[in-house]
Amino acid sequence: MLTAAEWEIVLLSLQVGGAALLVTLPIAFALAWLLARTTFPGKILLDAAIHLPLVVPPVVTGWLLLLAFAPAGPLGRLLEQTFGISVLFRWTGAAIAAGIMALPLMVRAIRLSLEAVDRRLEGAARTLGASPARVFRTITLPLALPGVLAGTVLGFARALGEFGATITFVSNVPGQTQTLPLAIYSALQQPGGDAMVLRLSAISVALSLAALVASELLARRAGRGVHVL
């Protein structure tokens, strides 16, 4: 049904989305923990900053990423000097853009699931002799896990759909940065590209729908106090 070139686009999208998640998940978890469990001056500013990618025009996010990762930009120079690499026009850059755009959704979901964990259970575990690290591993994390997974799946769906920041930041390079939405955009510009647009759009909708259903099921499990593992 899909041509070989179209399959490659799908696989590239999954690769970009997967890499974005891998990098973003630990960061999102740490930020969610800070917001859910600690108080510090400027917390509301951090909270707002994390949510920026949700409301700023994606093209602005992409432009800021471009400034940061350009050869003369702070992060671009660092990567160039330390590893001799650049993420511009590369799938890694697309993954960074997708990760940034997925971050707020993931932080929100993980934060909610951490806030929903009954702290009194953690206290009970401590009185039974468990260190804070063991409490985290055996109580907090398992209880928050459905919400964390729901947030991760949602973030993955968001990463797959990323368009504006990606095309601004790393352009639309077939085989490197041309993920599903960018390929659809390109096909729309081509005469006779309608069939391809239709097929790729169908794939996009199917992937998003599957992710949303999975996320919703996980979130419901969390709400019922039923646990995944």
Binding site: A124, A130, I139
Partner: peptide
């Protein structure tokens, strides 16, 4: 002393069994 070193056998009014 942190709670884990106090060796208290605490039976809470609401039991607080670990639901998972």
């Amino acid at each position: 002393l942190p709670p884990e070193r106090r060796r208290a056998g605490y039976v809470f009014q609401d039991a607080r069994l670990f639901p998972h």
